[in-house]
């Protein structure tokens, strides 16, 4: 599936203020609900997964990748990306605090693979990380992910 269908302006945001890690996951979930990408229960499912498996969802320094199962209310494959105004701790001693939340809604094991490949390309690139941290608008943040 094409990357610009998975990552869309409607589910990207910057300067998102949250109180804690659960708020960070809910903020990403809210964007996806408003966009019709997932049902409301998807946020609860992402939080349940994070509690069940521990803070492994912080997959890189400052970057959390919350996700849940397709049957937890995914309507269309999507990747929501929010940059927090103030980083929060997820309880991962290696990679806290988290400034970027990349929430993954998958409908199966296949549709989002191109999206993950693009994420790996962008988030494994130090120049891109600088660009992501410096983005002041959602358009700039979106472009950092799409133009790689």
């Amino acid at each position: 599936m094409e990357i610009n269908k998975l990552i869309r302006k409607e589910i990207v945001d910057v300067n998102v203020a949250v109180e804690d890690w659960q708020g960070a996951i809910r903020a990403a979930g809210k964007l996806m609900v408003e966009d019709g990408a997932v049902e409301e229960r998807f946020s609860d499912a992402m939080i349940r997964v994070a509690k069940e498996f521990g803070p492994y969802i912080v997959v890189a320094p400052g970057i959390a990748l919350p996700h849940a199962r397709p049957e937890d209310g995914v309507i269309k494959p999507s990747i929501a990306i929010i940059r927090l105004s103030t980083p929060v701790n997820f309880g991962n001693e290696d990679n806290d605090p988290v400034y970027l939340v990349v929430a993954l809604a998958a409908i199966d094991n296949e549709q989002h693979i191109d999206g993950l490949k693009q994420l790996a390309k962008v988030l494994g690139n130090k120049d891109k990380i600088v660009e992501i941290k410096a983005a002041t608008t959602k358009e700039e943040l979106l472009n950092a992910f799409l133009n790689a």
Binding site: V49, F53, I57, L65, H67, N109, H112, L116
Partner: peptide, 9 residues
């Protein structure tokens, strides 16, 4: 955890 995200990465 689920074989969907980080394992694929």
């Amino acid at each position: 955890g689920m074989g969907l995200g980080s394992g694929l990465l």
